[in-house]
């Protein structure tokens, strides 16, 4: 887990534990995090998403090298935190069916990247 992230994103290595490979794991991580952790993550990653996407688009998605995948996972984790910061002001969805009643299954792209 402590391997540095690829350049030019090695400075994001402290956030490596957020680089979770499934939507299910990312959602569970989000709702178990504190709002201050989420806000810190969101603010740090916000300016990095476009550069990460541009960087990863050097490879076709199906051929993304293993060492680059954590960057993709970080960007998708950012999308989880975006709803919290921009709309909910809370790690979870307020006034909503509890997450314990939900099951998530992988789509094709998640299967492709994680295969």
């Amino acid at each position: 887990m402590n391997n540095p992230l690829p350049e030019p994103f090695a400075h994001l290595t402290p956030y490596r534990s957020w680089a979770l490979s499934t939507e299910d794991a990312r959602m569970r991580r989000r709702i178990s995090a504190s709002m201050s952790e989420i806000t810190d993550y969101y603010q740090t990653l916000l300016p990095e998403i476009d550069p990460i996407a541009k960087h990863l688009d050097k490879w076709p998605l199906a051929e993304l090298p293993a060492e680059q995948k954590p960057l993709l996972y970080l960007a998708m984790m950012f999308m989880e935190t975006a709803m919290c910061v921009e709309f909910f002001f809370d790690p979870d969805v307020p006034e909503a069916l509890g997450a314990e009643h939900i099951e998530l299954y992988a789509g094709r792209s998640e299967q492709l990247v994680n295969s």
């Binding site: 998403i49 990460i52 541009k54 990863l56 998605l61 993709l72 999308m79 792209s109």
Partner: peptide
């Protein structure tokens, strides 16, 4: 998605 960017964008809609 054929690119990481498209996959990241789709993740937002899913969420």
């Amino acid at each position: 998605p054929t690119s990481a960017g498209a996959m990241i964008s789709q993740e937002y809609s899913k969420i």
